[in-house]
Design a protein around this nucleic acid. Structure first.
Lengths: 69, 69
DNA sequence: AACAAATGTTAGATATAGATAACATAGTAA
DNA sequence: TTACTATGTTATCTATATCTAACATTTGTT
């Protein structure tokens, strides 16, 4: 799974910390998300998408390999 | 947050167990999701949406109150 | 009625998301 | 150079999603 968080965040000229504050999580959490280091909860995914004025399906891109297991 | 899982599952004439097997989780997990008893991971949300041939944003409906905290 | 299938619900265990704090690294500006 | 800001990364901790197993309740069918 990859994400367009970094791309959209840059478009809004926000730092990881700016986004984290708006979303209500830690800066590291945003960093890990951008790196694909974990699989967020749906609620967090929604909050990030909402903050970046997009949808979950636009923000997170799944690939076939994500369906395995 | 509410979900249309039950509605779509009925449309495909699937039991909770049928859906659970396709998605790779337990029947209870689907039951709890339908009841809004917890907040799934993005990956699980995607798998359920994919199995029901819809998108995450169509399947899970957020309300303003979901943004609090 | 009685039986079966689907769903509800609970309790305890395990895996992992996310918090926290700390330190490292890269870039930029004085 | 120093200093600062943004990001990377690690380790430990806590909260919670999900598993597992069991039993209860509902609903349909005979």
């Amino acid at each position: 799974m990859r994400t367009r968080i970094k791309e959209l965040r840059a478009r809004y000229d926000m730092t990881q910390e700016d986004l984290a504050k708006k979303v209500g999580v830690r800066r590291e959490t945003i960093g890990f998300l951008e790196k694909g280091k974990y699989n967020p909860s749906l609620k967090l995914a929604y909050k990030v998408a909402n903050t970046l004025e997009t949808t979950i399906d636009e923000l997170f891109i799944f690939e076939d390999s994500d369906l395995e297991q």
